[in-house]
Write a protein that binds this DNA or RNA. Sequence first.
RNA 1: CGGGGAGUAGUUCAGAUGGCUAGAACGCUGCUUUUGGGAAGCAGAGGUCGCAGGUUCAAGUCCUGUCUCCCCGACCA
Length: 488
Amino acid sequence: MKKERITPRGENYSQWYLDVIREADLAENSIVRGCMVIKPNGYALWEKIQENLGRMIKETGHRNVYFPIFIPKSLLNKEAEHVEGFAKESAVVTHHRLKLNSRKELMVDPASRLEEEVIVRPTSETIMYDSFARWVTSYRDLPILINQWSNIVRWEMRTRLFLRTSEFLWQEGHTAHATHDEAEEEALKMLKVYKDFVEEYMAVPLISGEKSEGEKFPGALRTYTIEAMMQDCKALQAGTSHNLGDNFAKAFDITYLDKNNEKKYVWQTSWGASTRLIGALIMTHSDDRGLVLPPKMSETQVVIIPIWKTQEERKSVEKVCSKIESDLQKEGISTSTDYRDYLTPGFKFNDWEKKGIPVRIEIGPKDVEKKKAVVCRRDTNEKKSVEFKNIPKNVKNLMEDIQSDMFKKAKNFLNDNTHEIENFEDFKDFFKNKRGFVKAFWNQSKESEGEIKYATGASSRCLIGEGNGKCIFTGKPAKQKWVFGIGY
RNA sequence: CGGGGAGUAGUUCAGAUGGCUAGAACGCUGCUUUUGGGAAGCAGAGGUCGCAGGUUCAAGUCCUGUCUCCCCGACCA
């Protein structure tokens, strides 16, 4: 029996998002508050990120490390802004033992109270930089270029699968350099790596630039961001890269002797991207039939659906399927054939559409006879009949077409919903009725940012360029052009 | 932490003013017929009605307490 389609976008965007995740079997809420269970289909997406972003991180000279999940409270306390930024969302370990009480119930053993509480890492700057202080003594030890794949805990009040969970997976890079300029170059280089990965592999178009004072990372000198636009026109911060200046070097006493035997502080960067990227992928491309995956992010790129009535037909169809499957694999295309015999073809079509598999090939008795198969692309639902011998080449081209068409479609959407606005009345008017990115000149200050947010719900996303114009808020001459939007 | 809503089968929910053996749909198991866009019939399995008290001849339903979850805000990748 036909079930209702996935909730249409627009009516209830957040419900639609959750439906896509459920129907594609990516993840579910855990019984642990605010945490997420990532199921195999969802984890496969994370593995694509690890594989490709991970390779790009290594290619830029960084090596992987692992630091403890626990951070002594005293370490977290060392950088003033940093503490303040994370204090409100920390999970704290206070005891190390449980015991059974007289009713055989488990309880915390009060005798096991830790002398110093440890914090479950909300990010690893502090625990890593404590080590950096010992690793660095000479200019010859620099630069330090490391990366860590790990989980992170931030005790958020409100959570949402992939976008904001109390525990999430991420990658965090940490570097130390001899000079400010070298650190700045590194921060920008890694922002570029993120942008390249997200646009090229995930087909998610971005705007990128520096964050405002109010939005920057606690403890950073400057924060750079990549921002994506979701289909409800809200902005999603998809990754950040920070120039930490010498703030942490001073707090953790990370110093080296330079060529002139002078003691200097190091200059640092950190940068991270998380499972939120998966949320960005889902919200950028999915439609009312479910998830849509770009070929470069899909574990299975082509699914083959065999169709038969009689056992004889089944034999000849399966023979053709396995030939086509091996032909495709020779072209480097990952395939899967759905041989489940207790389901109808219609059910399977729908099943794989919900999962976002880029291309479906239908092969039945009619096709075997004509030596042609029906090839259907997920992103446009376009079907065509292709001769068996042409399938490998055809599908290979289709992979590239889908990848670039998905990017173009999302890019057009972003452009169509980006506007230039020059005065605050129009600005307020815009966010009253619509959503999207607004480019405007702005003399940034924490106070005006707060007032803009109060009046419109929008906040600055990033600085995108210089020029001459009038500040959107004060009307005074301004040189910086910013992008504003309603954020996730 | 503010404002709403909900806890009943694996899932989504229905069970009005208390009343017979607690229901449906989907899912699950078996058999049969099906199979080119979410198949159909028949037969089954599956429940401490969130938890703890109380009122009553009788509580999923009323009262008190308590816990949890969801949605919208404030906070954040």
